[in-house]
Computed example of a mutant assay.
Amino acid sequence: MNDARVELVSWSATPALRDIRQRVFVDEQHVPPSLEWDEHDLSAVHFQLLVNEQPAGTARLLRDGHIGRVAILPDYRGLGLGNLLMREVMRHAQELGHRHLELSAQTHAQRFYERLGFIRCSEPYMDAGIAHIDMRWSADTQSQAELPPIEFVSPGSFSIHNPEQQAKRYSTHLPYQLGEQRDLIEIDEEHALAHACHLVLQARRRLTISSPEQAMWLFHRRDFIDCCEQFIATHPKGSIRVLVNQVTADFTQGHSLSSLQHRFPSLCEIRKRHPDLAREPQVYLLADDSGILMFPQALQPQGFVRYNSPDQVRRWQASFDEHWSRSLSDQGLRRFTL
């Protein structure tokens, strides 16, 4: 359908997500509210399906690659919209570096997910009074179907000229300059990527990132990594320092900050916070001596960015440096680098 699209949205700022799940799971399928609503909604990546700009469906993606809460309103079923929604979720998951995806499917939907490449991996079980099965998708098992043979007759020799094509690099067009505007700009999931990339592309000396594994929906994005690569290419004497609380399997997969350390070990270094030091609830990015992007609570994707706030940057840089001085190298990261 040409009038249907899927967008990334914030859970707290998009009440339609809750309305759809209430109608489909609680009202229609009689799932107990105590089972429908959980703490994962605050940290998950949420998707909204729109038809003629009207909310029609939703799904969510957890940090571990689990897809859930896939729901389409009754008036929009049977139109292929579930396939559109799922393919966008899967595309975004792969962009984040996930090579394995899992979901718990209602048994009647098994064929639907099989057509998307998922494989059944459990016996039926009951969940919220509904029969389910576990299903798994792996990028390693996906292959293109073989094309049928075609007849071909060579036209003879001819010259071919293939001009070199360079991959298009991410660029931003925000009207803010690092070191100039002092305004505090509120951001959420929808706007965070553009501002984070804008800061990175304007930095010249130093990028400091704290606790990115708690906001992989932002720092694991291919566009953000591309901007870090541009920073490294443009400023070979610059540095990227990343401090994590823990090294998860997802953090070391795909096009990630870990891959930057692997390819540019002298410019990008990732270390683990010392376990004796209290974890900071914040997630932040510092650019040079003036730019800051901050999420005060890691699990709540609402924060702010300032392009000229040297006092704040100085304070958070000092806190980061203190933790960095006692940080540890992690065995998982060392194995990845080797």
Rank of each mutant, 00 (worst) to 15 (best):
R326N: 04
F219P: 09
F25A: 05
V24L: 10
W37K: 02
E164M: 03
Q94R: 15
R334W: 01
Q246P: 00
S211N: 14
Y176R: 09
P236H: 10
R206Q: 14
D188G: 15
L193P: 04
N83W: 04
A167W: 07
E229N: 08
Q144K: 10
G254D: 05
M126H: 10
Q261S: 11
S266F: 01
L8I: 15
T14Q: 13
R99W: 05
G80P: 14
S122A: 12
A203M: 01
L103F: 06
I240T: 08
L84C: 09
A71Q: 06
R69L: 08
L147Y: 03
I119E: 12
L8Q: 08
M135G: 04
Y76A: 02
K168G: 02
L174Y: 09
E190K: 13
S266V: 02
R271N: 01
L328Q: 15
S211K: 12
P74I: 04
E229W: 08
L8G: 09
I270P: 02
C268E: 02
N83Y: 02
Q282V: 03
A131R: 13
Q300V: 15
A145C: 01
A192M: 14
K168W: 12
I270A: 06
E190C: 11
A278Y: 00
S34Q: 15
D226Q: 15
F25M: 09
G238N: 05
R271P: 03
V70G: 12
L101T: 04
I72K: 10
E28K: 06
S309F: 12
D75L: 05
Q142W: 10
Q181V: 11
A71C: 13
M1R: 12
D276T: 11
L96F: 06
H274G: 08
H323P: 00
R273F: 01
D321L: 10
W37C: 02
Q106R: 12
W137M: 03
L243V: 11
M216N: 03
L260K: 01
E213K: 01
R60D: 09
H198F: 06
E102H: 10
C228P: 07
I292M: 09
A139M: 10
H191F: 09
M294V: 12
S34E: 15
R279W: 07
L96W: 02
A4K: 05
A105N: 09
A56Q: 12
S10A: 04
N245D: 11
L96I: 04
A93R: 08
E39S: 06
L193K: 11
F25C: 09
G303Y: 00
Q317P: 00
A196L: 03
Q246H: 06
S325D: 06
S154K: 11
Q253L: 05
Q261M: 05
Q177R: 15
Q312D: 15
L178S: 10
L260C: 00
E322M: 04
D64E: 13
G65S: 07
A298N: 06
G68Q: 07
Q48V: 08
L17K: 08
P32D: 13
R315G: 00
A196W: 09
R21E: 08
S239I: 05
R271M: 04
R77M: 09
L17V: 07
I240P: 04
L81M: 08
N162P: 00
Q230F: 06
I119Q: 15
Q142T: 12
I133C: 14
V242L: 07
S290M: 13
M294L: 13
Q331K: 08
T208A: 01
V89S: 11
G68C: 07
D276R: 11
P281F: 03
Q261N: 01
S34C: 14
L85Q: 03
